[in-house]
Design a protein around this nucleic acid. Structure first.
Length: 203
DNA sequence: TTTCCGATGTACT
DNA sequence: GTACATCGGAAAA
């Protein structure tokens, strides 16, 4: 395996999203020629999480959430934005991690071109909808295998000796009205590319 | 700076 | 008909 490839060793990706979510921070999401470093995520469980799309069982939209771990669940939000999740529950049990923010790493010129209204670099990926627009993720990527090096969208480890590990902060999930007390939003402390700087209730 | 609000596809009451 | 895992422009402060 060469640096930048997912390769083997992602077995830990199968399990409860609330435990896996913080471990995704720092990894790269690669889509075509573009890449971003994951700096903010949220965990969504299944039947036990009223805020999850999977709470009421499988539908045509959320079907990928019930499939094998390591795949990408993409859905349309508020009728106009795309949002992307990393599926981590075993087949039959929905559990996924919403990608909320990335720090641009590669293909940055293309990101600016696709999002002409962005003023600062931190406007490119600081939100689940913006993140998909910047990386070029859309509904055609729903179900993509993130662990397959040939996939159009995949996870990758940061280059060896790259960004040093940083503290993780946690807080309530954003934009939901149910199960708001669960501190399942995770981010790299102090990162300028997070969608919202606060609130953080735990570390 | 913060607050308010419209756009609009999918799922559910 | 209503809610929603959002975003960005306009108005208010």
């Amino acid at each position: 395996m060469t640096p930048g490839d997912a390769g083997p060793g992602f077995g830990w990706l199968a399990g409860r999203s609330s435990e896996i979510a913080p471990r995704l921070l720092g990894l790269f999401v690669v889509c075509g020629d573009r890449a971003g470093r994951i700096v903010e995520v949220e965990a969504y469980e299944g039947a036990d999480d009223p805020a999850s799309h999977a709470y009421r069982g499988p539908t045509p939209r959320n079907g990928v959430m019930f499939g094998p771990h390591g795949h990408l669940y993409v859905y349309r939000s508020y009728g106009m934005h795309w949002c992307a999740n990393v599926v981590c529950g075993p087949t039959g049990e929905a559990s996924a991690v919403l990608l909320r923010a990335v720090e641009p790493v590669a293909g940055i010129e293309a990101m600016w071109a696709d999002r002409p209204r962005a003023r600062r670099s931190s406007d490119l990926g600081s939100g689940p909808g913006k993140l998909c627009a910047a990386l070029g993720i859309d509904g055609s990527h729903n179900g993509a295998d993130l662990l397959d090096p040939l996939s159009p969208v995949r996870l990758a480890r940061p280059p060896a000796g790259g960004a040093p590990g940083r503290a993780v902060v946690a807080g309530p999930r954003i934009g939901i009205s149910r199960a708001v007390e669960r501190p399942w939003r995770y981010a790299l402390a102090g990162n300028a590319h997070v969608s919202r700087p606060r609130p953080w209730s735990l570390t």
